[in-house]
Every structure is written in structure tokens, then in C-alpha cells.
């Protein structure tokens, strides 16, 4: 009964169900193997492809591991100074109100040096999307402690673990901006499993659709791994993230707008 199907019969254009979106360039990404940045890039670009916004979108690249995001995202991009991506996005959106504008930032960029720009852009209710990748560490510069580093988490500048008494508490900036009246949609997602990626994609899609409403800022946090900075293999880092990051940074919508 079982007829043998040749692989050549399956590998035909009419049977294609998934391929890398053309909105990502063919360059090999500069990220470490297993880094969530690559998946997050793809999620954002797939949403833009589905919405047909390739020539209507301007992205703002941050400083950090994703500083070269403009090399991989095949759309109009602008690189901002460290932490200033929401300020640049504000200017771009006010000059080109018909364009879709988003920033793509890490936690060292958004929650440390760019805290003021982030909070004020959210409070002003700029009509932009902020994609925030939180891996609890400064990945690019060698795994130093960031504001989002967990209590007792080891990093290269907290080798005995983060001591809350002397180094302060981790910053839940997503909950912080959710309280501001300028934000319309605030959510926290992850990209470590297929289910999480599909949920994150829905959240990013909702964020970009919110830009059509002109009612405020949409903020999507993506909790990600940093296997090099955490000194783990990718799958172990993903499990560590589930066990340690998610209790402090619980996934789910924090503020949802009514459509």
C-alpha cells in the first residue's frame, strides 16, 4: 500500500510551505549560533511581508548585537546612537506620518542607556512600534551585567551573581511603560519554541496594525537567550531561560487595546 515517494516529487514549487522571507537578505547573520535575534528578525520581516509593507516601513537599528540589523533586513533602515532609537523613530514618524516606523532594540540599549528616550517616547504616545529583545545581559561587549540581569545571575561584571543589595533590582521596563497613558499595546513574548514564535508573530502583527489606528505606541518585548553570554549551549540556554527568566519576566499581554 505504501508507495515509495521520491524526495524529488515532494521538492516541487507547488508543494512549498515554508521558506525564508525575501525581506531578509541572503547575508549570513552575524549572531551566535542559536541566538534569538535571528528568529526575532525573521518574525518581524514575515509580518511586514504578509502586510505588504516592505516599501512603506522604516526601521531604526540600535547599538548592540543587532547594530547590523540593517544588513539583514531588506527594508529602509536608519542606525541610531546608543539608546536613541525611539527619539530617531519619533522624528522619522513625524516627518513621514504615512510610513510604518519601528525600532529594534536590545536591553542594554532600551533599558539602560536609552531609558529616558524610551519612557518619554512611550509617554508622549508616539505612533511607532518598539521591538525590545531582552536577554538580561550585554551580549555584544562580552556578557556584562545589564539592568535586566536577574538576581544572583552571573555575568562577567557580577562573577559571584548579581547581589540585589549592592547592585540594585532588575528592571521590568515593560511593566513600567504599560502604566503610561501613551502606550496602546504592551506585551511580552519569546521565540524559543515553535509555539512561542507563532505567538510572537501574532503580537508583532497586532503591533504593526495598531500603527494604522494612530492611537499610541505598541511595545513588544521578546525574552531571548544569550547562550554565549550565559556560557551555555543553545538548547540548555533556552531551558535556563524557561526556568529562570520567565518567572521574573512572565510571558503574555500586559496591556491590550480594544480594536
Amino acid at each position: 500500500m505504501d508507495t515509495v515517494i521520491k524526495k524529488e516529487d515532494i521538492r516541487k514549487p507547488e508543494n512549498l510551505v515554508y521558506k525564508k522571507t525575501p525581506l531578509l537578505t541572503d547575508k549570513v547573520m552575524s549572531y551566535c549560533p542559536g541566538c534569538g535575534h535571528g528568529t526575532a528578525h525573521r518574525v518581524v520581516m514575515e509580518v511586514l511581508e504578509e502586510m505588504g509593507l516592505q516599501d512603506k516601513t522604516i526601521g531604526i537599528a540600535p547599538v548592540g548585537c543587532s547594530v547590523l540589523a540593517y544588513e539583514f533586513m531588506n527594508i529602509d533602515m536608519q542606525q541610531a546612537a546608543h539608546g536613541r532609537a525611539p527619539a530617531v523613530a519619533t522624528a522619522v514618524k513625524r516627518l513621514f506620518p504615512e510610513k510604518f516606523v519601528f525600532t529594534y532594540q536590545g536591553d542594554g540599549d532600551l533599558a539602560a542607556i536609552g531609558t529616558a528616550e524610551t519612557i518619554h517616547a512611550c509617554n508622549r504616545g508616539e505612533n511607532i512600534v518598539i521591538i525590545f529583545i531582552n536577554n538580561g545581559i550585554y551580549g555584544m561587549t562580552g556578557g556584562q551585567m545589564a539592568p535586566t540581569t536577574l538576581p544572583n545571575m552571573k555575568s562577567s561584571t557580577s562573577p559571584y551573581g548579581r547581589d540585589v543589595a549592592t547592585m540594585g533590582n532588575p528592571l521590568r521596563i515593560t511593566e513600567l511603560v504599560a502604566q503610561l497613558p501613551g502606550t496602546l499595546y504592551v506585551t511580552r513574548q519569546a521565540v524559543h519554541t515553535p509555539v512561542a514564535v507563532r505567538k510572537a508573530k501574532k503580537a508583532v502583527r497586532k503591533a504593526f496594525e495598531n500603527q494604522k489606528l494612530n492611537k499610541g505606541l505598541s511595545f513588544v518585548e521578546i525574552v531571548s537567550n544569550c547562550n554565549s553570554g550565559w556560557k551555555m549551549t543553545p538548547n540548555v540556554a533556552n531551558q535556563w531561560m524557561v526556568d529562570n527568566m520567565f518567572p521574573y519576566y512572565p510571558l503574555g499581554d500586559i496591556k491590550v487595546n480594544e480594536d
Binding site: T3, I5, D9, I10, R11, K12, N15, L16, V17, Y18, K19, K20, T21, L24, V28, M29, Y31, P33, G34, C35, G36, H37, G38, T39, R42, V191, H192, T193, P194, V197, R198
Partner: peptide
Amino acid sequence: TGCTNCAVVCPDGVITVYRKKI
């Protein structure tokens, strides 16, 4: 089975998936 799970999580997007009904 062509479920696309592997391609969806691949950080570098290197997997292309085909699926055919038999």
C-alpha cells in the same frame, strides 16, 4: 510531515519545507 516547526524556530532561516498530500 512538513509541519514547519523546525523552520519556524531556526534562527538563521536555513530550512525550507515542502509538503505533499498522499
